[in-house]
Amino acid sequence: MVDLSQYLPILIFLVIALGLSTLFVFLPMATARLTGVYNPTAEKLSEYECGFPAFEDARSQFDVKFYLVAISFIIFDLEAAFLFPWAVSLGVTGWVGWTGMMIFLGILAIGLAYEWKIGALDWD
């Protein structure tokens, strides 16, 4: 088993963060409920959008351009994820590892050049 005590600070941090954020959400609600007058009606509870009832569902279809951006993000995100182990193990892998990564980056650089030239990075 791994020595997990090194993760204790982050565990404590997470517990405190969770506790505080819960407090911030529920404490005002509880205070309002306990001190104010609680008397809901249908009108009070209806949604309010600049004085009008909401026109449509908040979920609407949007342009496929966003998708292209998200895909590019994921691809380069994955590329970056490969860089972490490469960077820390360069002492073991030596020139083989270095050359390998350069070829990998080269392949994706070609992809980036293609993407750029074809106009996929332009918004309009």
Binding site: F82, G100, I103, F104, G111, Y114, I118, A120
Partner: peptide
């Protein structure tokens, strides 16, 4: 690893 790079590239071409 290099071939995985090619897969990423193909994914990029596909999206475009």
């Amino acid at each position: 690893f290099e071939m995985a790079g090619l897969i990423l590239l193909v994914a990029m071409i596909g999206a475009i």
